[in-house]
Amino acid sequence: MSPYLPIALMLIISALIGVITISVGVIVRPNKPEKVKLSVYECGMPEFSDARKRYSVKFYIIAMLFVIFDVETVFLFPWAVAFDLVGIFGLVEMIIFIIILVFGYFYAWRKGALEWA
């Protein structure tokens, strides 16, 4: 049996549990919708604009930085696992890799991508 089969089962069962817990309440819970109740929370006032407006670009920058750094991290894992096999060559390569990463990191820092002001 593939070791991934239990994982698939686990995913399915977790999903089922979520779905069941949501749907089972439909039988027992009351349902009395009214207009005010169905409005979005805005400190008790009637909402006055759509929420989906433009927000700080900082979030995007963080997202991009994450994507880059996370992918770089992914490279570290196989290397770490195979560390004994790749030897000094792998070590040097990865040091170079990290140095390059650090350059990028400090660049982002200096450019203020990490500031939140």
């Binding site: 140095i99 390059i100 350059f103 990028g104 400090f106 660049y107 200096r110 450019k111």
Partner: peptide
Amino acid sequence: GLLLIVIDV
């Protein structure tokens, strides 16, 4: 290239 980044900064 990396030096260039430093220079830029």
